[in-house]
Write a protein that binds this DNA or RNA. Structure first.
Lengths: 336, 336
DNA sequence: AGTAGCATTGCAAGCGTATACATTTTTCGA
DNA sequence: TCGAAAAATGTATACGCTTGCAATGCTACT
């Protein structure tokens, strides 16, 4: 079987008895072409199964219509939702998402080189720890770049994230109102800006009331099993917290399991547990975990619109956007 | 600020004092070029930050190196894992994944037209119900297409899926060995081939022993809440099952919650619950759900290697590959 | 009718690379 | 050392599209 060549604009032009340029114009929004010939051309195109070759168009216009997504944080409980949102928003804006997975530094560099090779018009990064190197690469090539959710100090790129200071205050107030006294904060990543934002604001808020304080901060604890173990360890201490704030719902659920099935700790009477992320399981009757609901949808949309506007205005100016997250009170915190 | 043009192969050629063709060769694996000049060219390229323009290469070679992923089944509990696996495997093979999300028929068609415009070299579809239309489109354009996990009767494309017949037999044998008698099967989609495969094989297996049978099949039930409600409804019937096989872990967990927290049904003594998917929560101590572990990793890898080999051999011959899934016995089925 | 002004169309030159073919250089055996 | 074969390089063209510019067709006004 001989692979038949795909029809091109010249074929359509021949059939419609017009010039190739006119065919191009027929498929270019807002181009100078009469309704009559456009009609004629579209008919011919349909007959030939013609689709403009975007690769050629990209070459000619020297912009690919591609947006690179560097996705590293696959463990995020809402990874699928986020990626879906990104892809859909990008598509809706008339671009196409090219997804690269990367964890190691080398693979990040490789991914970025690939992006450059593919002449992507912009890049979105979803990683716990974006590297400064990549923003430099983008800068050198004049490619706008937006970080979703996590930034790194000193990185030269736009960031869309939640307002962790406000979150910290919300938690602080909720804790104060209910007269809890001793707070422990548990995080997977000690350098996360979300973590430090919450932690700082929480500390400041509770410092206004005497007798309430953050008694410990544990980092490097990540996931259900680790949470289960963490609460066992914590309960072996002399001074036990009566509030645990956890920067991951999974970890919080592990803690809860430890409380209920192993240690017999009464939640929320003796211990208040607050997670982050509002994964589906948190809402299940078995768990009923209080948590922070992050507006992923908005984060994602904002990320994309920010990027696209940068692409269209050719702007490389870094922006810093913060959206609000909401504390959801469920069974793991006392009722007022 | 004037946007400076990206350096091209001619610039490199000038700097290295060779022809543009040589530069091209330096970046083409296995091309006829001496080590010395290659070295010289690579040095010049590095100095100019040169990266071959893949768009131009694509145009010239008339193959884009792009693989389209049509992703519809975002609700799948392992959606992120699957997409990650696809992207990584595709990248590893030297291609780039372009991801499109689609639910409605129109958006599927639109996505496919976009794929054609972008001259993708192949397409992978992850959807509960792939449309025959899209395989036709691909066929017409000579683009290989592989379906992951779910096929549709009469569709003309390669499929990589699990061997649901074997799964059905495994469940059947486990049920027989433990002297359970009355089986109910719950599925979200009545037309799923995985569902019917399991169901048929299960029916056949248990039919070998007198007194054991499938007493009901419920379809259209999907998710935790629906499962919770389903068990309540089931328990209002006169004849109650003592085995529930569920084609989704989430639904199974809802059922479990209903049993334990609402109806007080003893699991596994009075009721055996088996899910499908082995999501993380199924392994948690709170749930300890018996389930079918689907080898997503292998499915994904097989899907990609199948597609790539089709791309490379220009083959449009549909293949049908089945991988084995394993029954994992946990606390929701009697110990032998 | 004549013509200025605008809308439409055609022409042709890129966009950056790959590659067939021609030409030059190198290799290696006799 | 010479010459044929092999390797390396250069030349020129194609890939399919966009777009500046020139040419043409049309409108409406005097």
């Amino acid at each position: 079987m001989t692979t038949k060549r795909r029809n091109n604009s010249q074929d359509v032009a021949d059939l419609a008895r017009v010039s190739q340029a006119s065919v191009s114009r027929a498929f270019t929004l807002g181009a100078s072409i009469s309704a009559k010939t456009k009609m004629k051309i579209l008919a011919a195109a349909a007959k030939l199964d013609y689709q403009p070759n975007i690769i050629a168009r990209s070459l000619s216009k020297s912009q690919s219509g591609l947006v690179g997504i560097l996705f590293a944080n696959w463990d995020h409980p809402k990874a699928a939702e986020i990626l879906k949102g990104l892809c859909e928003a990008i598509t809706e804006k008339g671009f196409k998402p090219v997804v690269q997975s990367a964890n190691t530094t080398e693979s990040v560099d490789k991914a970025f080189n690939d992006f450059l090779s593919y002449q992507v018009d912009g890049v979105i990064v979803f990683s716990m720890s974006p590297s400064a190197n990549m923003s430099a690469l983008c800068f050198r090539s004049n490619i706008p770049i937006v970080l979703l959710n996590h930034s790194t100090p000193g990185i030269n790129a736009s960031v869309v994230t939640i307002d962790s200071t406000k979150v910290g205050r919300q938690i602080g107030n909720a804790v104060l109102e209910r007269c809890y006294k001793r707070i422990t904060i548990i995080s997977s990543d000690a350098h996360s800006q979300v973590f430090s934002g919450i932690s700082d604001a929480l500390a400041e808020t509770v410092s206004q009331a005497a007798g309430t304080e953050i008694i410990s901060q544990l980092t490097g604890i990540h996931g259900y099993e680790a949470g289960f173990q963490a609460i066992i360890d914590l309960w072996a201490e002399v001074i036990k917290p009566d509030v645990i704030v956890c920067t991951s719902d999974y970890t919080a659920l592990g803690i809860l399991a430890g409380c209920r099935h192993k240690l017999g700790i009464r939640v929320p009477e003796d211990l208040c547990v607050i997670g982050l992320g509002d994964i589906p399981a948190s809402g299940w009757k078995d768990h009923d975990l209080s948590t922070i609901k992050i507006p992923h949808d908005e984060l994602v949309k904002k990320t994309v619109t920010t990027l696209i506007s940068k692409i269209e205005t050719q702007s490389m100016e870094p922006e810093n956007l913060k959206l609000e997250a909401k504390l959801i009170l469920r069974g793991t915190i006392k009722n007022l």
